[in-house]
Amino acid sequence: MRAFIFPGQSSQKVGMGAELAASSIAARDVFDEVDDTLRQHLSVLMREGPEDRLTLTENAQPAIMANAIATLRVLEHDFGVKLLEHANCVAGHSLGEYTALASVGAFGLADTALLLKLRGWSMQAAVPLGEGTMAVLLGADVEQAKALAEAAAQGEVCEVANDNDPSQVVISGHTGAIERAVALTKEHGIKRGMILNVSAPFHSSLMAPAAKRMAGALEETPPGALMLPLYANVTAAAVTDPAQITALLVEQITGRVRWRESVLAMRADGVESFVELGGKVVGPMVSRTDRDAQMTSLVTMKDLEAFAKEIA
Rank of each mutant, 00 (worst) to 15 (best):
P7M: 06
G15F: 02
L20E: 03
L20H: 02
S23P: 01
I25T: 13
A26S: 15
V30Y: 00
E33D: 14
D36H: 03
R39A: 15
H41R: 15
D52L: 04
L56N: 06
L56M: 15
L56K: 13
E58C: 11
L75P: 06
L75K: 03
E76M: 05
H77S: 14
L83Y: 06
A87K: 01
H93I: 07
L95G: 09
G96F: 01
G96I: 08
E97K: 03
E97D: 12
Y98C: 12
A100F: 01
L101G: 14
A102M: 04
S103Y: 01
G105N: 04
A106H: 01
L115P: 09
L116G: 12
L118H: 01
G120H: 00
W121N: 07
M123T: 03
M123D: 03
A126T: 06
P128L: 11
P128R: 10
L129P: 01
G132L: 05
G132M: 07
A135R: 08
G139W: 09
Q144V: 07
Q144C: 13
Q144W: 04
A147W: 00
L148W: 01
A152S: 15
G155W: 05
E156H: 10
C158V: 11
S172I: 09
H174W: 01
A177H: 07
E179M: 10
R180M: 08
R180H: 06
V182M: 11
A183S: 14
A183F: 08
A183G: 09
E187A: 15
I190Y: 03
I190P: 07
K191N: 08
R192M: 10
R192H: 05
G193Y: 02
G193F: 03
M194S: 10
S199C: 09
A200D: 05
L206T: 08
M207R: 05
A210F: 06
M214C: 05
E219L: 04
E219H: 09
P223E: 09
G224E: 07
A225T: 14
M227R: 11
Y231P: 00
Y231N: 09
V234T: 15
T235R: 14
A237I: 03
A237W: 00
V239P: 00
A247G: 15
A247T: 12
G255V: 09
W259P: 01
S262H: 07
A265K: 10
M266F: 02
A268N: 14
A268E: 15
D269R: 04
G270L: 11
E272K: 12
V275D: 09
L277P: 04
L277D: 06
L277Y: 00
G279A: 13
G283Y: 02
P284W: 10
V286G: 05
R288C: 04
R288T: 03
D290L: 10
A293I: 08
Q294Y: 00
T296S: 15
T296Q: 08
M301S: 10
D303W: 02
A308P: 06
I311K: 05
A312Y: 02
